[in-house]
Amino acid sequence: MAEQVIKERELENFLTYLTIDRGLSLNTKENYARDLGGYLTYLEQQSIEHFNQVKREHIQTYLIELYGRGLNTKSVARHLSAIRTFHQYLMIERLCSQNPCDLIESPKLSRDLPEVLSVAEVERLLESFTEETAADLRNHAMVELLYASGLRVSELLALNIVDIHLSMQFIKCRGKGDKERIVPIGEVASDVLTRYLEKARPQLLKKSTDVLFLNRFGDPMSRQGFFKILKKQAQMAGITKNLSPHKLRHSFATHLIENGVDLRLVQEMLGHSDISTTQIYTHMSKEHLKELFEHTHPRAQALKERDSTS
């Protein structure tokens, strides 16, 4: 019992270390406390009296137990990360001479492919705008530009008039890390933006500002405001997928790669610092090709017919 009290005290010290030395959030700290509480209980059940007695086999058995409780791979990986960090801390404090997690590989996480709109769905969305009012024209311009450029919603709403170069059909934007990039937008988006600047923005303008997209009060359009506009327009266009600004960005990248655009160019347009982030869209493209094959190739159709009659 005394050993358990010592372990719990070290856990409290570790959580303090996370807050002060590592600067982790309260939510992360609570996750560590919950995951490591179960781990310390397991060590007690194994009659382990000192952290130096913990071996790789103990942790592997604990991870198997977690799987047995129904935890998924992502949750087990999170538990292992907490245990690994805890033992690193114990080594720093000279309470443990080695980290028993060093030879344990983290479970391989499958990366979920983001859902995207089909080209037909995007066309239906963009053709659903009427442009009858200044707000309608502004909404069309925002959504048309978002899909034409692949911008993040924060980048879209931060655009100023000086960032738009319609004669050259490109825009300048600032992304993560305040990095500036040039993004082509094409003729259709340029035309809609021209109409917005000439007809709609002067009606929405209530005070002097360089911000491109304004709400009905003449203030910069908010993320929440744009999200509501997009959801409403998707409903009007009969799109049943849960549409978000980021889903349009995913759709932009996926459609480019499906049409043969080089991955490096897509990386540059999206503003990704690491190409591995962009590579997810090649996987999505392969999934799309596989789906097309299964729906259209005669041999795939013949196999389906054979399976249905067997």
Rank of each mutant, 00 (worst) to 15 (best):
D274S: 10
I59M: 07
I257W: 02
H288G: 00
L90R: 11
R306K: 13
S273F: 00
L230G: 07
V143Y: 01
R22K: 15
P100L: 13
Q53L: 13
L156D: 05
G218T: 11
Q60L: 15
M221C: 12
P107E: 08
T19F: 01
D307S: 09
N99M: 00
L159T: 05
L43A: 10
T73A: 13
M91E: 04
M236T: 03
E268N: 13
T309H: 06
I59V: 14
V162E: 06
L197I: 15
Q235P: 00
A300V: 14
H250A: 04
T282M: 03
M142K: 05
Q98K: 11
E12P: 03
L125A: 11
M236L: 09
K176N: 14
R124Q: 15
R152P: 12
D307W: 12
G70F: 06
E144T: 01
N27R: 11
F14P: 02
A120S: 14
E287M: 04
D262H: 11
N13E: 10
G218A: 13
L125P: 11
S25I: 00
Q279M: 07
L63H: 06
G177C: 01
A135Q: 07
G225P: 10
D191A: 14
L265A: 13
L26R: 02
L157D: 02
A300P: 12
I161M: 15
